[in-house]
């Protein structure tokens, strides 16, 4: 049985831990809010992009575009978006389990990682890593653009026939879902539509796709085809940016929940230990009193 001093020391250290986890919880909560706001503020861009794409679709034969063309090959490039830091519950484990299951990702797939946890885990699993990108917090579009441009280049050169992204979809603060989505080739039907995975940046209202000019169509300069050529990569860039934002929001909310649980556990532990401490203190006092009374009795 631990003595009084040991218990006192343990209470103190648990209190310190609780303070730290509480602080981390609050930090994660504010970062999550920021990630959500960031996803929301990309909304006008998405609306406008979709509007232009919808209008373009009518005027071009989009099947011809190389980024939209389905290919028969089996070579896969998988972008795995994980966190840099741990302490965020089962987030990375769930994602990596999904990645290593064969129904989603072929065994010969080559990986590109975003986030340190993913690159560590995948190299432990002896999977082939092609590149590792770091994305700071908050997510900068120009950083994620490098990743998507890298993917586009690999896809167009014919090295890979499909590009998939494994990321964590933000559903709400307490639930996040590991997801694998195909980034390239784009299904033409998806162009100009809201993606299924949009969680953080979801607009409460329906997507604003007004038909553009009141009468007549747009003029495209130099031609509809060339505008499509330049806008489709932007669409891909934006998709990946959104996926990474989803992951970020998931990370922070998972960390917030994990830290909340840790704080609660620590509080419970402090309570238990304090009870134990008081019991022992009481026992010690009783024992002391007993000793004095027995001594007095013996003297009589």
């Amino acid at each position: 049985m631990a003595n009084l001093r040991d218990i006192r020391r343990r209470i103190k250290s648990v209190k310190n831990t609780a303070q730290i986890t509480k602080a981390m919880q609050l930090v994660a909560a504010s970062k999550m809010k920021k990630a959500q706001d960031q996803a929301m503020s990309g909304r006008p861009y998405a609306d406008l992009l979709n509007k232009v794409l919808v209008n373009l679709k009518e005027q071009t034969s989009e099947e011809d575009h190389p980024l939209l063309k389905e290919r028969d090959g089996e070579k896969e490039l998988v972008i795995v978006v994980t966190t840099d830091k741990g302490l965020c519950g089962p987030l990375n484990t769930n994602l990596l389990r999904l990645v290593s299951s064969q129904e989603n990702v072929s065994t010969e797939a080559v990986f590109v990682t975003v986030g340190r946890k993913g690159s560590q885990a995948l190299s432990r699993m002896k999977r082939e890593l092609l590149a590792d990108f770091a994305v700071k917090d908050p997510v900068a579009f120009l950083e994620t653009k490098q990743i998507s441009e890298f993917a586009i280049e690999k896809f167009l050169s014919g090295e890979y026939d499909r590009v998939k992204v494994a990321f964590t979809n933000f559903i709400n603060t307490i639930s996040q879902e590991a997801t694998v989505e195909t980034l390239l080739p784009i299904r033409p039907i998806d162009l100009g539509r809201d993606s299924d995975f949009v969680g953080v940046g979801k607009d409460p209202g329906p997507l604003d796709v007004n038909p553009g000019p009141e009468y007549g169509g747009y003029l495209f300069e130099p031609s509809a085809g060339s505008v499509l050529d330049s806008i489709v990569p932007q669409y891909v860039n934006y998709q990946l940016y959104q996926m990474i934002l989803e992951s970020r929001a998931s990370e922070h909310s998972a960390r917030m929940v994990a830290m909340k649980a840790a704080t609660d556990n620590a509080q419970q532990m402090i309570k238990d230990l304090t009870l134990e401490y008081n019991k022992q203190r009481q026992a010690a006092i009783t024992a002391e009193l007993l000793e004095i009374t027995t001594a007095m009795k013996a003297l009589e």
Binding site: V52, N55, L56, G212, P213, G216, G217, Y218, L219, F220, E221, P222, S226, V227, S230, I231
Partner: peptide, 19 residues
């Protein structure tokens, strides 16, 4: 700055999309 040179836009411009 359009892809084919600078493009000035005034009120009531025709509907246009360009890179």
């Amino acid at each position: 700055p359009g892809i084919e040179g600078e493009l000035g836009i005034l009120k009531s411009h025709a509907p246009l999309v360009t890179t």
